[in-house]
Design a protein around this nucleic acid. Structure first.
Lengths: 155, 155
DNA sequence: TGTATTTATCATGTGGATATGATAAATATT
DNA sequence: AATATTTATCATATCCACATGATAAATACA
């Protein structure tokens, strides 16, 4: 999986909304302007995120979008989910042939790389992408060697 | 980067051609049939690989395609290169903003995942994907722990 | 030289992701 | 109730990867 442009918009937009604080809702226009992204397209994207429980939307004056989940609990995988099948782990050479028995020769190696990707999306949160979130991310994704070995063993 | 369908065709086709031995050239029709892939589209793909020096082509009766590079020296990155920009390592959230200084917060973590992907493509060869190539691949991509630590340090 | 065989190339079609512009529906404020 | 503001939705357009079908060009071989 490589994430689509729409998912990139979604992640950046959610980061922006999260950064605006929990106060007043953020309007599509603001987000679109800040992100330099087409307004109506973003509107649909944010609407999809609302349907999915990532944002809440309010119509009318003083309306807009708010986070529905604390940024520290909101993974990139969840934000991208409505737009990309982030969890699929297809065969490198086209899906059907190599799953299960008779895997292609590089199946295991590819699986490891693929799993690392998925872990990135399922472990990184919106909070990690906000300014000031750097150290927390680094600690979780680069644990000391002993812990890392332990985790790899049971994956 | 996630590789396109065309690159997948290319890799599978090259593996097939490599598997046919160095004897007679392999015709597009054979490859297309074996891979269950549209013939004319594959034709263009193989032609591109010839232009790129991965295959050699011969026209007319007894013509077809042959490998131009020993399979053990032919990386997946090279085969995919005409169709995908395998070497690009864009920002997770859309290119321009976060390269160089002012990287986005997850830049480093993403870079590590991204680098692992690139290494997979630049280290895995066509020989590794042919039947019987499994052990060689496993040895190179899963070196003993000491060697792995050493390599990581200088990357 | 002619003919069959095979790659090379051209013109065109299709589907999905991305984008645009207009209109509908909801709601706070007066 | 009227109005302004904002999201929701509809209809359509654009672009590109992928694909199809037809034709041209090269070449082995009778």
């Amino acid at each position: 999986m490589w994430i689509s442009g729409t998912s990139q918009y979604a992640i950046r937009a959610v980061v922006f909304v999260a950064g605006a604080g929990g106060g007043a809702p953020v309007r599509v226009g603001e987000v679109a302007k800040a992100l330099q992204v087409p307004r109506n397209y973003l509107s649909k994207t944010l609407h999809a995120l609302s349907r999915d429980g990532v944002l809440t939307s309010t119509r009318g004056p003083r309306g807009g979008f708010r986070l529905a989940v604390p940024p520290g609990q909101l993974t990139l995988a969840r934000v991208a989910a409505p737009f990309d099948d982030v969890d699929s782990k297809p065969c490198l050479l086209g899906r059907t042939q190599c799953s299960g028995r008779r895997p292609c020769a590089a199946h295991a190696q590819w699986g490891a790389v693929s799993a690392a990707l998925q872990q990135f999306f399922s472990r990184t949160t919106i909070a990690d992408l906000m300014d000031g979130g750097r150290r927390a991310t680094a600690r979780r994704l680069h644990p000391p060697a002993a812990a890392r070995r332990a985790r790899v063993r049971d994956t």
